[in-house]
């Protein structure tokens, strides 16, 4: 390089916050050396919504409406996590039917969320057909959600003490039809992508993180399991009766993009297994605790109304 009279220098490029491949608004200040990224400084906060401040002015039950919009791809998980926390504070538990339905909608939600991931990743890597397939199957799940909750996104369906309403007539048949459809479709994605040289070149060995780094940087979920760390809250700290369901936690060792892709595909299959068990367990019964079991005054339980400095 020196002989040719060229200098090595890095180029600073600003990527985002409005960039087609950020999906969500993230800005990255990249230092590039040719095509290699030397350093990356992420800038976040372009979607800071102030949900915490708003919920201070609301009742506990109203809080569900806010947290469901926190991660709009997995609303049921947000709602359930929030409701479990409030229920632990109150010392109550949702009735068994509500627990089973919670698990069912959460696992369907997991599939929908993974499908968006798969679809957009496919779009980024040039597999545009994957985008169409992924969102097509997601629509099937959204139709089930709409039937059950009345909304496609932001359901506010899981409430403190149970659910906002019971499953409607025909919902079980609809889920069963989906369970018949989906395994073939997941197989289709795998056939389409796993062997594709383009897909493999852009995922195998890319972005690998070691298990130690994952722990130090606070990474969890499928990313951690793709690095060989078996840590799944459904197994380690079960909630909503997950310990009684029969499913496996998929693990890979490599920790790269391809391992994460494989883990997520396998997780979708395991979710289907759990949903099937949920359907078999649905027995008639109450889906929400009676109002007397939830010990708060009817007027307002917000922080403001109780606050006496």
């Amino acid at each position: 390089m020196e002989d040719l009279g060229l200098r090595e220098e890095t180029m600073i490029i600003n990527m985002g916050p409005q960039h087609p491949s950020t999906h969500g608004v993230l800005r990255m200040v990249l230092a590039l050396d040719g095509e290699y990224v030397v350093s990356c400084r992420p800038v976040i906060g372009y979607l800071h919504t102030g949900i915490e401040k708003n919920t201070e002015y609301r009742t506990w039950q109203q809080g569900v409406t806010f947290v469901t919009r926190a991660d709009y791809l997995s609303p049921f998980f947000n709602e359930t996590a929030y409701c479990l926390a409030v229920e632990r504070l109150l010392g109550i538990e949702a009735p068994p039917r509500a627990q089973v339905i919670r698990v069912m909608v959460m696992e369907l939600n997991r599939i929908a969320s993974h499908l968006v991931w798969l679809a957009t990743t496919g779009l980024e890597l040039g597999a545009i057909s994957m985008m169409l397939y992924g969102l097509r199957e997601r629509e099937e799940i959204l139709r089930i959600f709409e039937m059950v909750t009345g909304l496609r996104l932001n359901h506010a369906y899981v409430r403190v003490g149970g659910l906002s309403m019971d499953l409607p007539d025909g919902a079980v048949d609809r889920v069963r039809a989906f369970l018949k459809l989906m395994p073939g479709r997941i197989h289709e994605y795998q056939e389409l992508l796993s062997g594709s040289p383009i897909w493999r070149q852009r995922t195998v060995g890319i972005g690998s993180v070691s298990p130690e780094d994952m722990l130090a940087l606070g990474v969890t979920g499928p990313m951690m399991r793709a690095a060989g760390v078996s840590w799944d809250l459904r197994k380690e700290e079960p909630y909503c009766g997950y310990e009684t369901y029969d499913f496996e936690v998929p693990l890979r060792e490599a920790g790269d993009c391809f391992a994460r892709y494989e883990v997520r595909l396998e997780e979708m299959r395991q979710s289907l297994r759990i949903v099937e068990q949920c359907l078999d367990r649905l027995t008639p019964g109450p889906w929400v605790r009676t109002a007397s079991a939830i010990p708060w005054s009817t007027s307002s339980t917000s922080w403001r109304s109780r606050w006496r400095p």
């Binding site: 999906h23 969500g24 979607l47 709009y72 969102l135 496609r152 996104l153």
Partner: peptide, 16 residues
């Protein structure tokens, strides 16, 4: 696309 609506915008552009 900024938030939940962006997902619906993507769905509008997709096959269904």
């Amino acid at each position: 696309g900024l938030a939940c609506c962006a997902i619906e915008m993507m769905a509008t552009g997709a096959a269904d």
